[in-house]
Design a protein around this nucleic acid. Structure first.
Lengths: 205, 205
DNA sequence: CCTAAGATGTATACATCGTTCACATCAGGG
DNA sequence: CCCTGATGTGAACGATGTATACATCTTAGG
């Protein structure tokens, strides 16, 4: 891997494509993420990316998987190991904030049915799902963790999308945080009643 | 509008395009919805649709608006005027069922930031939003209707997306219904506590 | 050290797509 | 009756995803 004089070989085209795709997504939205644009930005011919990604969807899946991982670290940064309703609410706020800070990425992560052939992608989403379940179980040990974590995730996920679609007031981060906190706490008020409900319908991913 | 012998003029291309677009969406997903395919299916030249829709996005917006209206009637069919938590839960189940029965349409409705230039589209979404607010207010008269309706909508919307993404068990309608019902009731258990909360952060659309 | 094979990038080509523009055809009101 | 506006046609342009054949580099094994 010596950085030889030749510019024929890129060095790490795979990573360069991922970065370029990510940038294009944030700059021009999903429509701007074309394989050719990625190749141009990486300074490479139009077909070069095919050596590293089977097709456009594979690249998008890779970007989405990266997004999941970033979301996970973003959440743990909000609080490493939440164990109280307030700490859990802080994580929820971080989730919605991530969506608002990376709207195109967040949409790419959920725009299409998760391609099951991208094991990188399913692994990343499973990690998120498991993480949510774990911290909910830590906060409400006496409750059906599967049921509550699904409900919490759905609530927060729905809030994120409604904010993205402009259905709610997202003018300042404080307003968003207050809104998410209030909604999540409303659910938590009912959480103790959820122990052993008939909500066995949920299933972890 | 006499059905003259000539086939030159279609008669109602606008509606035909809408129908063709809708069919293509359900058959081949969002990727299959191309203007040219719509024109082909309507039996018309590739550029004819431009007489009725400014561009592809305008057509998609029209399809989305139709989807909102169908969703609204689907909800009212579940229950015309819900006023108890159980009736409200039935409407929630109908919401998620609609998403699962028309996945591509549902995604088209929420895939992109709602184009504010399509007044048909914003009107249709505002109608849904208002409807949710109204039935929540009818069921919980003593509660901050804006706050609770936003929270309920977010929960149900999130459940719909998690089901669409295969994150939850959607194997049978009964399982889905049980899951949605349980989640919604959990929230309702806390609803009485929401009167006059600090959740003035919400705003109707 | 040399060489052959695999990995990586290039060039070319094709079908499709969105969109524009000039033109053809039809319908209805002066 | 014909002229004007609405509607549909056709050819054309640039961009895109992708397949194929070819070029170049890296590196493992003799």
């Amino acid at each position: 891997m010596s950085r030889s004089s030749s510019t024929y070989h890129h060095g790490d085209l795979r990573a360069a494509c991922l970065r370029a795709a990510r940038e294009l997504l944030e700059e021009d939205g999903s429509a701007g993420l074309s394989l050719r644009a990625v190749a141009r930005r990486a300074g490479v011919s139009a077909t070069a990316p095919y050596r590293h990604y089977a097709d456009r969807e594979a690249l998008v899946s890779a970007v989405a998987a990266e997004g999941y991982r970033e979301l996970a670290t973003h959440l743990t940064q909000a609080h490493p190991a939440p164990s109280t309703p307030d700490e859990l609410a802080a994580v929820a706020v971080a989730y919605v904030r991530f969506a608002l800070e990376h709207p195109a990425l967040f949409r790419a992560m959920f725009a299409e049915p998760c391609d099951p052939t991208s094991e990188e992608r399913v692994a990343a989403t499973a990690a998120i799902s498991e993480y949510v379940r774990t911290i909910v179980a830590a906060t409400f040990p006496d409750v059906d963790a599967d049921a509550l974590s699904t409900t919490v995730w759905a609530l927060v996920h729905g809030l994120a999308f409604l904010h993205l679609d402009g259905k709610l007031d997202s003018s300042t981060p404080e307003i968003v945080a207050a809104q998410v906190t209030s909604a999540v706490h409303a659910l938590f008020n009912a959480a103790p009643a959820m122990s052993g409900t008939a909500a066995g319908a949920q299933r972890g991913v």
